[in-house]
């Protein structure tokens, strides 16, 4: 049998079509012929040895793969557990997200959010006050474990920073009265749309007009006056950011957002890219808080209840 095989006098592969296999074999025959011959001879001499080598190679390969893809050590998470606290950087100058109370203690939506998340891990939230433009630097040099500060997503930083899913959308929305029939920008032909003069909403209104939207832009010197125009019926709709909208709703204004966000500005939590355990724990904590309705309660606590909602 051995001689027959060496001379190439053997049956075709069982069940193989002659023409198909020929093509496959020709393609495969571009390799090192000497090496192939050596392997073949070795295999013929000791097939068990080769089976053993194959099994060992499989085991070593599997171990290497599992080792490289296994959970890395998360020093941030370990240090948090040892310390018993989660250090959260924020600039307490943006109520109701974060500000200082009369005694200088940080309070606000983000402060409570940090505490709620830390509590799910059995930790205390330690708020570290840092200037807004230094927050990411503080995270990158491990002065804090996370940043929660009405902080925007920045795609350019994703090499160094991991961002949580958004917990608040601050982008510009089309806002109408509670009972208005408008649903999208396309519905606004002939309508008057109030904006704060110079604001992002104003820029979007002008862009929509350049693109052919048929509404009239009604600029006001302040957001408050623009909202008042909508409430009083002097305008049919309004373009404002999500924070201003939510504050107005909390003050009892009977207004609501319709359609998609026109200029996304999500607030996210930033943690180090080198903290995978913290990242997954944060994701889980946010999901849990959302499912339990805690995020909604936090929003109501700091922005007030939306008029007309239960």
């Amino acid at each position: 049998m051995k001689d027959q095989e060496r001379n190439g006098e053997r049956d075709p592969l069982q069940g193989a079509q002659d023409s198909d296999d020929r093509q496959w074999l020709v393609a495969g025959s571009r390799g090192d012929r000497w090496a192939g011959s050596f392997v073949r001879r070795s295999f013929e001499r000791g097939p068990r040895l080769w089976i053993a080598v194959f099994i060992v190679a499989l085991a070593v390969g599997g171990w290497l793969i599992l080792r490289s893809s296994g959970p890395a050590v998360d020093e941030t998470w370990l240090t948090m557990q040892e310390r018993g606290s989660w250090r959260v950087g924020m600039d307490p100058s943006f109520p109701p997200f974060e500000t200082l109370d009369g005694e200088g203690a940080p309070v606000g939506y983000d402060v409570d959010l940090a505490r709620e998340i830390a509590a799910t891990w059995g930790l205390e939230a330690e708020i570290v006050a840092i200037g807004y433009d230094s927050l990411l630097d503080a995270l990158l040099v491990d002065r804090v474990d996370a940043v929660i500060s009405a902080f925007p997503y920045n795609a350019r930083m994703t090499k160094d920073v991991h961002y949580s899913p958004p917990y608040f959308e601050a982008g510009v929305r089309l806002v109408v009265g509670a009972d208005a029939a408008y649903g999208t920008v396309e519905d606004l032909d002939g309508a008057g749309v109030a904006v704060e003069w110079g604001s992002r909403g104003d820029a979007i209104a002008r862009r929509l007009q350049r693109e052919g939207a048929g509404f009239s832009r009604l600029p006001f010197e302040s957001t408050e006056k623009a909202i008042e125009a909508l409430v009083s019926g002097d305008s049919d709709a309004l373009l404002i950011d999500g924070v201003t909208l939510r504050l107005a709703q909390g003050e009892g204004k009977q207004i609501r957002a319709v359609g998609a966000v026109l200029d996304e500005d999500p607030y996210v939590i930033a943690v180090s890219i080198k903290a995978p355990k913290l990242q997954s724990a944060l994701l889980q904590a946010l999901a849990t808080l959302d499912e339990e309705g805690q995020l909604g309660l936090l929003e109501e606590r700091w922005f007030g209840q939306v008029a007309g909602s239960e």
């Binding site: 190439g8 495969g28 012929r33 011959s37 194959f54």
Partner: peptide, 20 residues
């Protein structure tokens, strides 16, 4: 599978499969 592999190695040296 090993049988097919061995068969492949054998057929690689078949003169009919050599690239001109």
């Amino acid at each position: 599978m090993i049988g097919r592999f061995a068969s492949y190695l054998r057929r690689k040296s078949d003169p009919i499969n050599r690239i001109p």
